[in-house]
Design a protein around this nucleic acid. Sequence first.
DNA 1: CCCGCAGTCGGAAACGTTTTCATGCTTCTA
DNA 2: TAGAAGCATGAAAACGTTTCCGACTGCGGG
Lengths: 337, 337
Amino acid sequence: MEIYTIRDVARKAGVAVSTVSRVLNGRPDVSEETRKKVLDVVEQFGFVQNRNARNLKNTKPGYAAIIVRGRRNAFLNDVATQMIEFAQGHKTPFLVKYIDEEDDEFDAMRQLYAEKRAGSFILLGSRLDERCEAVRAVGVPVVFATVDAERAEFDNASSVCVDDRAAMRAMMDRILDQGHTRVAVFGGNRDGDDIFARRYQGAMDSLRAHGIEYDPDEYVLSRFSLEGGYESAVRFFEKHQDVTAVMTMSDMMAMGVTRALRDMGLRVPEDVSVSGFDGTVMARYYVPSIASVRQPVEEIARKSVELLCDMLEGGEARHVKVDYSLVEGESIAQVRA
Amino acid sequence: MEIYTIRDVARKAGVAVSTVSRVLNGRPDVSEETRKKVLDVVEQFGFVQNRNARNLKNTKPGYAAIIVRGRRNAFLNDVATQMIEFAQGHKTPFLVKYIDEEDDEFDAMRQLYAEKRAGSFILLGSRLDERCEAVRAVGVPVVFATVDAERAEFDNASSVCVDDRAAMRAMMDRILDQGHTRVAVFGGNRDGDDIFARRYQGAMDSLRAHGIEYDPDEYVLSRFSLEGGYESAVRFFEKHQDVTAVMTMSDMMAMGVTRALRDMGLRVPEDVSVSGFDGTVMARYYVPSIASVRQPVEEIARKSVELLCDMLEGGEARHVKVDYSLVEGESIAQVRA
DNA sequence: CCCGCAGTCGGAAACGTTTTCATGCTTCTA
DNA sequence: TAGAAGCATGAAAACGTTTCCGACTGCGGG
């Protein structure tokens, strides 16, 4: 495998390296004739630029980076994909970086800043915990997507998300309207100030409004995966047979719960109703299709990009809420007699 | 956001840049005292190495790269994840590169070779079409995973896969054993010499052995996704109501088909049996659970890494077949009377 | 005829590392 | 005690780009 450098191309084309560079970067100040000559050699050599050298030399922060926490999360992945779609039109090039669940996104930011010259960021699925103080410190434009950063009061950070609390409340309303009075809630940590805590609050809002007292034992901390939902359901229903509905904070979890119920001889929705969150494609295709809270992927993506570009042009940080919607599903039914 | 270079660290620590470099790379020839001094400064600055400069300087091909075609493919993703798991123990560091469905993996190889100094590759989900001649040309060690490259007769390429033909035949046997005589097959292009063509042949083998004549109209070229399966099923069943089973080449497709059947008022498996391929987790959690051909993710991953390391140490290229297995599922039943 | 200017192009200095080579300082050996 | 040998360190040359600066044309205007 032959590796050619810009120098090889220059030699072969009989020009200087600077000229080759100009051609490769589409600079205007090069004659049509030389451009042609250089491009011919590039073609012939199958020359590919070395990005390391390029990025090393280019020190001005031109990129915007999308940092996605969790490679497996289909929902976040879809949002990221949409983002780069929308980003196409804009002047600043976008790049995507996936980090693991446990990784520190601020390390990632620093790294991207140092290496890729990324000077602004969209953070997808950030936890917004104590580490987020680093965002304040870095002082570069940041957009939190699917996270409400309003209360954190950064002056360099915007955010876009659905009103998680209202959304969860609406879904719970819908479940209760079917006559259910004992509803288990499966989800993330309800004690913090993140989206999971807010979703929990939303569920409580609805129960309170319906005059239903909630048994704290009926909240289950669960992993957001098929397996997580499955295991939680098995453990839970061993003790609580009288619950007639399970509300979850993710579609994957909801499908895991549904499978578990079926394995335990309970039918969904005839015996137990189940709801999800996110509005993923898989949930629509599941049997029974999972009733869910749809987060508008395209809108979140578009708004995020928009907010970031705004800030890049000197605009204020803003916090926007996009509209959720309830998606119908076969997984919710009238409570059994 | 402050960016520090190795030079800043050196100055602050009162040593030369070369010494800092030695510390960072864990070289032995540096006194414990200076090491400590340097690491302190690194800690204090929150210094991160610039990988561009590092890779630019390091010219010896030390990495092995895993190239995954298709970010959305859960099965390939799982395999890749397992691979880096297994690769941990080996001397050569592995890196993963995702490319899009349409991208050319040989461009990716060249790029990785030039930039990341990747001198050997594992190709996941490669098409093995005309472009694969490039593999012969590059002459570096390559392992095709989930692809049978035996017939292509590279001397620098190994491969690991299940016996797709036998696997598909086994699954078809199982369907036919339930009394079905009209089985539709949904899958990829059956005309080439890739895994899809072989799977098709496998299905035909079984039908032939059972003395069943296959109507070529009952083969459907379909995309390997939920939507693909859904659309194909809707189109197909408008014309062919007498088919009692659908065999597919992917779990996603099978779930799409199942959902479509249900929407058309047909029950799975009572009215129509459905089978998948890959043995993904989602298929197990689906309702009905999808009978599938399990490809052993861990084994494919382990073998691939092993074969690559073998070749790196001068070993011959080999082609290994790993064992598939049939996974039971609720989606297949006795043919209706 | 000289000057300025636009259009092209080449030379060379960076960018942040790694690594080779040289150097000084110990310590050991004969 | 001289020299070899080993350790710890510094200086400097790369790696493949981009970009600034300057040089060289040819041209039109004063």
